[in-house]
């Protein structure tokens, strides 16, 4: 067994364990953290396949941004574990049926004649200095530039729609526009009044004489 094989089996074991814990951990925060572990391990596996751009992008996007926001939400939930456990056994039978259907569907595709993994030749090792980034850039921005741009525009529309649907500006929130704030000059706030200086009044008699 070469070192690469040993690393693969090590990472695969960790990935399986983390994946299992994602669905078995009782505390949602722990489950989310196991999901982070699963992403990082999967990135390691991709690295073994010499797909360093995808591996690093997986860590950057999913671990660095998506899971952070996920944890953000999960940590703020007020979770009562006992109440969540209620009705667990009632739902077991429907859940098993759904899971069974999914297993059969996956089996039909993966074991069928469309997905012959064993028939594929192992990928040839890339020459030294081969840059994934170059290859991906060429594919995305030269060979498939129109489909790629179309997909991006579609995503942009989806983002705008999602924000437009959920954005509710509060009418009663008091907010100072910093642009207005910065533009304030002294003359707007302070009024200098010119007035004749007055003569001091004649010394009052009430004070104690020294």
């Amino acid at each position: 067994m070469s070192i690469a094989d040993a690393v693969f089996y090590g990472f695969a074991a960790i990935l399986l364990f983390a994946g299992l814990r994602v669905i078995t951990a009782r505390n949602p925060v722990h489950a989310a953290l196991y999901l982070v572990l699963a992403f990082v391990t999967a990135a390691g596996l991709w690295m073994l396949l010499e797909a360093e751009f995808l591996a690093i992008a997986l860590v950057l996007v999913y671990v660095g941004a998506v899971m952070v926001l996920f944890l953000f939400v999960v940590m703020m939930l007020d979770i009562n574990l006992d109440r969540m456990r209620e009705g667990y056994w009632d739902w077991l039978v429907p859940a098993l049926v759904v899971a069974g259907i999914m297993v059969v569907e996956m089996a039909v595709i993966l074991a069928g004649r469309y997905f012959r993994v064993e028939g594929l030749a192992p990928p040839a090792p890339k020459p030294d200095g081969f840059s994934n980034t170059d290859a991906l850039g060429r594919l995305l921005y030269v060979d498939y530039v129109y489909p790629f741009e179309l997909a991006s525009v579609l995503l942009l529309v989806a983002i705008v729609a999602a924000i437009a649907l959920t954005l509710r500006a509060r009418k009663d929130s008091r907010y100072v526009d910093p642009a207005v704030q910065v533009a304030v000059r002294r003359a707007d706030r302070v009024r200098l009044v010119a007035m004749v200086s007055e003569k001091p009044a004649a010394p009052a008699a009430e004070g104690p004489t020294s």
């Binding site: 690093i56 860590v59 950057l60 671990v63 660095g64 840059s131 994934n132």
Partner: peptide
Amino acid sequence: AGLLYVMA
């Protein structure tokens, strides 16, 4: 991919 690595 050094720069990407640093960001990740």
